[in-house]
Computed example of a mutant assay.
Amino acid sequence: MSNKRTKPFSIKYLPGFTPVALVCFVLLYAPIVTMVVYSFNSGQSVALFEDFSVAWYFAAAENELVQEAALRSLIIAAFASGIATVLATMAALGTTRTKNYPGRTLIYLMINQPLMVPEVVTAVALLIFFASIKVATGYSGLAYLILAHAAFCVPFAYLPIRARMEGMDRALEIAAADLYATPWKTFRRVTLPLVAPGIAAGAMLAFVISLDDVIITEFVKSAGQDTLPTYMLGQLRRAVTPEVNAISSALLAVTVILLTAFFLLSGRNSPVGK
């Protein structure tokens, strides 16, 4: 018998892996890099780079329509992510801190349903649902957009929170119960501090998803309720200018910062491992 040890399988050693990976990275990031570069174009052309300038960033910052859309986006994202995070935390508690029961798999499926169904289908369903409420009540404010975004963001917040709870050792929670702590006190003093990084990560991810959403916003919003992404979509239908590139680059920067914070928080080890 030969004692020669074989190398463990690694996909990076397969023939052609490196060039295919490079092509994928170029196709993914070359358009984004091009957009960021052209956001510093001093001219109005989106095809000819004339000179370096940050004038379009100042123009976007001074545009009242951009200011209103950006503020509206932040308000909707803040409230929607807050609602989604609370609901996701409750759902995570109900699916990880209880004994196994019939239908748990179905509950997982229902919570994650927005991730599996095409977003346009969810948008049409929300449009029909909220349209009937608008007709019955006569109210057409931002609450519909906030609730629509919250419903769509729940599974995005649920996944990191549930993962955090499943990775926690329940010894401290059991010890607190043995010391006659009530369920609420155990949650507030033990579970919540341990799961806080997961909750923060879920809230950040939900905030980013809500901030960047276009399809659901486009279907549910009323007149005069443009968010920053839908405002940009409307501008692109008229003419493409470096101002749109500047707004996109700024939105990209915010998204990258929040997603980096999300991965840092979700990647932290639990203070009490299994």
Rank of each mutant, 00 (worst) to 15 (best):
P102S: 08
A125G: 10
I107D: 01
S132T: 14
T96S: 14
A92I: 02
A91K: 00
T105H: 10
M110A: 14
V117W: 09
K99D: 12
A131L: 14
T89I: 01
I128R: 11
L109G: 10
P118Y: 07
L93W: 11
L93V: 13
T96D: 03
R104N: 07
I133Y: 13
T105I: 10
P114E: 06
L109F: 06
L109I: 08
T122C: 03
T95S: 04
T89A: 01
A131T: 15
V121C: 03
K99I: 10
L126G: 01
R97S: 07
V124A: 07
T89F: 00
E119C: 00
P118R: 08
A88M: 07
Y101E: 04
T89P: 00
P102D: 07
M116E: 07
A125S: 15
I128D: 12
V86S: 03
V121D: 02
M110R: 02
Q113R: 10
T89H: 00
T96N: 09
P118M: 12
N112I: 12
I133V: 13
Y101D: 04
L109R: 04
I107M: 06
V124K: 04
A125D: 10
I128G: 10
R104L: 11
I111E: 09
A88E: 01
A88L: 05
T122L: 03
V124S: 03
A88I: 02
P118D: 13
T96C: 04
N100K: 13
M110S: 05
I111D: 07
I128C: 13
A125H: 07
Y108M: 11
L115E: 01
V124Q: 05
M90T: 11
V120R: 05
T95A: 00
T122E: 01
T98H: 13
I133L: 13
Q113I: 14
V121K: 02
M116G: 05
V124E: 06
P102W: 07
N100V: 13
G103W: 08
M110W: 02
Y108I: 07
Y101P: 01
Q113N: 14
V117S: 08
I128K: 13
V120E: 04
M90L: 15
A91I: 00
V86C: 08
T98F: 13
L127A: 10
L106V: 11
L115F: 01
K99Q: 11
T95I: 06
Q113G: 12
L115D: 00
A88R: 00
M90P: 04
K99A: 15
A131C: 10
I107L: 09
A131Y: 14
L115W: 03
A123D: 04
M90C: 15
T98A: 11
A125Q: 09
L115V: 04
V124T: 07
I128M: 15
M90G: 11
P114G: 04
L93D: 06
